[in-house]
Nucleic acid binder design. Structure first.
Lengths: 220, 220, 220, 220
DNA sequence: AATGAATGAGCCTTCATTCAT
DNA sequence: GATGAATGAAGGCTCATTCAT
């Protein structure tokens, strides 16, 4: 294993990590390559040398974070498929909550994803579906199961959205976290408490929608 | 009424509107004043003449949108305070939904607000609290009423967050609207259907949390 | 007598005075017309309206100050031509000293003149000779009288320069005044003391040169 | 020795020299970086790359010229400290005269210094004292020696000023040189002639003041 | 594999001037 | 006689990228 000048980590790798940090912090436009190179302890030309340009680095950063994302917390929460639906819902919610509330790489990834939702880049288009589909699939199945067969497709969809928005929108940025919850840091226990709340709240909500569906009423 | 050189709308006003559009579309950084001036049919120096700079225009745009926001849809939905809580909840949800789903000025305002949540500017700091407080106050009171006296403060807070996130996070951008709901445009009826869903879902959720609270259990 | 909007002084006049102040303070380039107009309580376009442009205002300002200059302190100090040469030298020195040390209009004029020496403008070329000639003529005659007939033309010239530089270079700017003399303000008595010194010093210098001239030696 | 892309002189160095020329010619405001870069055969952005901005270049130019200044003509003129005071005065005068009359780098430096006296920049403040102190110290000691112990502090100060102004104010700009002396160029011999004059004149002046001091009279 | 000097396009801003009122 | 909105040229600076080493 070759050792690099600094700490054994290849320049390319250091650039990638600096890129993750900086792009997550400032967004694509506000980030500047000189800053990224400086943080990576590399030359101004390093980004162009190793990646071919700012765009390409951003693509790699996104892909890198994206992969981390997909591996980090499996949405099934490691639970067997025959666990009670309530348990599986809790596991799902907790898994989803980990993303925005992670204080490390995953948090950066979530920041980046939010930025991409707000100001989409070309890079985004290709991977978003790939990023979201497994979550959607799993969520959809679970909600359908909980709503029962009487629910319409739209009821399932809307419940999905209610659920996902509770989990993912809880944390856009440090600032919003502070404003919304009154604190910036969440311990594991606090996160579990929040997951518990979202699960209970959503189970109640789903039950209400199910009752409506079975009573024959139906939203637009 | 004096008529301006071009079409009767003052240049300053045209710049302000162009600014709203462009800042909402691209964010502060990506927006460039030349573009804004071009869209307003004015000279490159017009922004500096009328506002003193890009920063100041942004400030005015934000203030302008902010004011529109506050006037547009009162959070009480125009309902008397002694209406049933369920009705008042529906009115609140509908009022909140109008903001992100508005296809005009208000939608631009919401875009801008989301951008500010993700990449805060100095301008933001002062006005955010002012923007949010009335919503929070009203939401808080309503949730408390629906949860009953047995609920803890945190239960109220978390229910608030669940509710607000369902309403406001439904629509970050055109792209996400498409991806989430499968369509870009919402008719008034569709919006009311969504409001109906969020109301029913949340009433169910709140009922569940209330049951927990009254049975003596309590989230973290 | 018509009264203007502000204080009975015509806008044109106010612009001229503001121009004097500002040009003297900042020089031609650094001065900007908006500032001048603001100080004159007039519109941005006022300079162009009344003078035709910044250049033209500068020309008028220069001419105005120049005239003030010429009238202010006659170089003969009001002394009869048959006073002793020593007295006439003192009167001349005092008159010359008044220019740079004047804290009002004349000081501004001197500032402007120094600026023109350092960064000449077209305006300057025409008037400088006119400004300087009377001083030079009088100085020349006096020095010649004091040096006696044996002195060469160059000796007279150099003595003139020695004298003039002592008087006029004493004060380029507030800053230099402070650095050179250790104080910013000069009372009338202090100014007279300085004039006394320069006179005595120069009489001594002239006497020395006269001795050389009469002993047959001669500078290059 | 590495050779640069163009002619063996580093771009930075060429920029510095072009900066000296242009700033001395036009002053800080009138100088524009594009012009400097053009003269240095470099790109418009070169100044920003190498110095960080126009301000910083100006600072470097000043510092560079300042150092040249201090090294160029030592104020002791290379004379031993036990030479006759008259000889040391002549050496001092000649050294001081070299500065304004130098047709190369030193002349540029003097131009810049004069500009700074008239329109001080922040840059100036820090270095002026450093520039002037050695001259003042040496002048002061010499004058005190020539005036004898009876002279007051103010008499010494005023004689210093008389001397320094004769030397340094002889040449503000080409234009003034022409107007004052009737010629633009000074040969070495002519300069020595001028130095001779100033020395003789000042010795006479100092003698006169000394006589006054010793006779008990005293200026304000 | 990596550097850093150098580039040029693009941006925001300043400012003297113009023009319709 | 005077205004102030509007203009366009020009300047300084940032930044992604290129090129010779």
């Amino acid at each position: 294993m070759r050792t690099s000048r600094r700490d054994g980590m290849e320049t390319r790798q250091r650039l990638l990590e600096a890129g993750c940090r900086v792009f997550a912090e400032k967004g694509y436009q506000d980030a500047n390559v000189a800053d990224i190179c400086r943080r990576a302890g590399a030359n101004v030309a390093a980004v162009n040398y190793h990646f071919g340009g700012k765009d390409a680095l951003y693509g790699e950063v996104w892909r890198h974070i994206f992969d981390t994302f997909m591996q980090a917390y499996p949405v099934d929460g490691g639970l067997p498929a025959d666990s009670p639906a309530e348990n599986r819902l809790y596991a799902l919610v907790l898994a989803l909550l980990h993303r925005p509330f992670d204080d490390g790489r995953l948090g950066e990834g979530f920041q980046l994803a939010v930025r991409e939702m707000v100001s989409p880049t070309d890079v985004f288009a290709g991977t978003y579906r790939e990023l979201v589909t497994p979550v959607r699939t799993r969520t959809h199945a679970l909600i359908r199961e909980l709503l029962g067969p009487a629910a319409t497709g739209q009821q399932v969809l809307y419940c999905e959205i209610s659920l996902i928005n509770q989990c993912l929108s809880a944390n856009f940025s440090r600032g919003r976290r502070k404003l919304l919850f009154g604190r910036e840091r969440f311990s594991r226990a606090q996160l579990e408490g929040l997951a518990r709340h979202i699960t209970d709240f959503s189970l109640g909500g789903i039950a209400a929608i199910r009752a409506l569906a079975e009573s024959g009423q139906c939203g637009s």
